[in-house]
Amino acid sequence: MDNVLEVKNLTLNFGGLQALDNVSLEINKGEIAALIGPNGAGKTTLFNCLTGIHKPAAGDIILHPPQGKSRRLNNFKINQITTLGIARTFQNIRLFGGMTVLENVMIGRHCRTGAGIAGAILRDKSTRHEENLIVNESYCILEKIGLNIYVNDLAKNLPYGAQRRLEIARALATDPFLLLLDEPAAGMNPQETKELEDLIYSLRDDHNLSILLIEHDMKLVMNLAQNIFVLDYGEEIARGTPQEICRNPAVIKAYLGVEASAEYN
């Protein structure tokens, strides 16, 4: 079995609205997959189900960690899922604005460290060691993402593109094996988007990550993804390689019928 994540017949209702209807997908190990679809198709909702924010009404979310046994994630709490190895970023950037850039990343290390109250007060040797380790690891991540010039700046003062990257850095700090990126290129200029593309490749290769991303920038999606899933009105209308998706009549209809063809550019 090569999947890291398997979603089977996932269904979720908000009141009368069918937000997700029998959605299934699989993410292979080491793969970059993309989730696309018009606005309101249920992409972020699916992410929210995967990360425990919404509880699905029916269906299964099954995680196959590289080490350890498979688990059904349906009833796990948000932080437990993160601890199991799924990390995510948010479409509407949710950083800890009043904290420094480094601290934002250090928060990501929280679930991999264990100093308690006594350690905090007494600041014994092992706590100091752990604290130094957190700082160093976080700094390394910032270097990798290219944010090390901002270490001590407040997150809310960063330029927009850097904030998006900081979200990725924070997610990376939780040591995931599956990374969910919610519109990572939104609001970026072409230069930044290109850098992001390289970054995502290097994340997959250097950290052995599997990546699922929601993105509206089709050029980026076509360049990055090996596998694409298309949602429309909460239903999966197509899946396949970029070439297959381009030619899929259902996809073209969904996009042209709902939104301007500008989405393709």
Binding site: K77, T82, T83, R94, G98, I107, A173, T174
Partner: peptide
């Protein structure tokens, strides 16, 4: 700062 982001970063 942000409860949801905090949980998503792995904090109970």
């Amino acid at each position: 700062e942000d409860e949801l982001a905090c949980q998503a970063a792995g904090i109970d």
